[in-house]
């Protein structure tokens, strides 16, 4: 699986369990909003950077990219606050937001998708009480990831087929003549996939079961 957002490094942060990291992130968010002072936000930012760059040894670029994506917004936020309230409250809001986004990026960059999936399955364990099956969450995730490239391929195929017949519709017409048939094809494929899943034991109930009386 290609994970552009995961950065493999042998660090204690990487080794920490995904559940603990997610809890820390949640705790940080609570802290930043419960104690809205410049000192707390500043300390949290320094701490986040220390963990991310110092302990986890992530490349600066990984975190810089996140901050850079927010640059105009943070700037605009500062200006709006300076005009409506004061510069200090603007700086505080910007700092808090930046800290949270960077902390989230640290968790994402140090945790594999498979570990996250395991956490999600564990979080879904209470579903068992109401008759749900937590393992199905893992299956859903796997299936969605598998469908993404298939979908792109089918979309290309439809486009090619239409181009071969001299039509390359644009605009709203393209959506109707390309997306609608594509969706129908994909729904049929999803149905076929479900049959294949059943054939490999996904479900022990027949597809066309008699109605409950």
């Amino acid at each position: 699986m290609t994970l552009p957002l995961y950065v493999p490094v042998a660090s204690p942060v990487h080794r920490l369990s995904a559940g603990v990291k997610l809890l820390c992130l949640a705790a940080l968010a609570v802290l930043l909003f419960a104690r809205p002072t410049l000192t707390v936000a500043g300390a949290a930012l320094v701490g986040t950077l220390a963990v991310g760059l110092g302990v986890a040894r992530l490349p600066v670029a990984v975190l810089a990219r996140q901050a850079w994506a927010l640059r105009w917004f943070l700037l605009a936020l500062l200006v709006v606050h300076a005009l409506t309230t004061d510069v200090a409250s603007g700086a505080h809001t910007v700092l808090r937001l930046l800290t949270l986004v960077l902390a989230a990026a640290v968790v994402t960059a140090t945790t594999r998708v498979t570990e996250m999936v395991a956490v999600v399955e564990r979080l879904c364990a209470p579903l068992r009480l109401v008759g749900g099956r937590p393992q199905r969450v893992g299956l859903l995730i796997a299936m969605a990831l598998r469908f993404i490239p298939v979908l792109v391929e089918r979309a290309d195929r439809i486009r090619a087929a239409q181009a071969a017949r001299g039509g390359a519709p644009r605009g709203v017409r393209a959506l109707r003549t390309t997306v609608a048939p594509l969706l129908v094809q994909l729904l049929q494929m999803a149905h076929d996939v479900s049959e294949a899943l059943d054939a490999r034991g996904a479900d022990d109930v027949p597809a066309h079961r008699p109605r409950r009386t």
């Binding site: 969605a144 729904l187 996939v193 479900s194 899943l197």
Partner: peptide
């Protein structure tokens, strides 16, 4: 299972 496949799709 079919519903799961639609959801994933």
């Amino acid at each position: 299972t079919r519903d799961l496949a639609y959801v994933a799709l």
